[in-house]
Design a protein around this nucleic acid. Structure first.
Lengths: 111, 111
DNA sequence: GCAGGGCATCGACGCCCGTCAATGTATCAA
DNA sequence: TTGATACATTGACGGGCGTCGATGCCCTGC
């Protein structure tokens, strides 16, 4: 496909050269964006970020999300596996913290 | 779930208040991120952005993507439906342009 | 030890996604 | 008109995702 011209006289375009994306970087960024590709996860992450340094308790995330507790736990797991949040158990409750570096990294990928 | 305490003395945490995300905004942003949640599309978008104002010809996107022509056409369609690129037919060839505003909008959603 | 609550995991269901081969449509050249 | 080219669409397949109910694990309070 890469421009075997119908006739030598017709020029399609200037081929796109090296792009800013390594294949490994693209795969890594895609995983991060996939974690953001769901309104529920976006909502959860937004609440966790808003909670600041103290972190957010799962018990306060279930009701606002409008989903069942197992579903919320599933989404939090995906956010954790994508590196966007970290989890910590404090006694009975589980606390989630945002990872600003990972968020900034995805923001940088949009450039 | 939302904190019917085991005992009144134990406090779980301070409930997360209003977050920055409207539900409609979350759904809209999620659609955009879903379009970025694939390495092939990320690669395609990166090449289209790198092409600048002139735009990128599909004939130069197929080979670098490592996918078949119908698959590339499918991904470009998704990018177009997500508002990240626009398409324009110039005679035989199709040209794709990036939409910087939409990209900036997604970047702003990471805040 | 026992009972209860918070959270994670499992199993199952329906749906959507990524991929390709085959086909269709529009344009250009001879 | 005929043939070739560029791109889009269709149909089909396998796999992964979002959701829930049921269940299991761990901690707390009695």
């Amino acid at each position: 496909m890469a421009r075997p011209m119908p006739t030598p006289a017709v020029e399609c375009c200037t081929p796109v050269g090296a792009d800013g994306f390594d294949h490994a970087d693209a795969a890594e960024a895609a995983k991060g964006f996939a974690a953001l590709a769901d309104p529920v996860r976006l909502h959860l992450l937004s609440m966790i970020v808003a909670a600041g340094d103290g972190g957010a308790c799962v018990c306060d995330l279930v009701a606002p999300s409008g989903r069942s507790q197992p579903t919320v736990s599933h989404h939090l797991r995906l956010l954790r596996e994508a590196g966007l949040v970290t989890s910590e158990r404090r006694g009975t409750w589980a606390w989630y913290h945002a990872v600003p570096d990972r968020i900034a990294q995805l923001k940088a990928a949009l450039a």
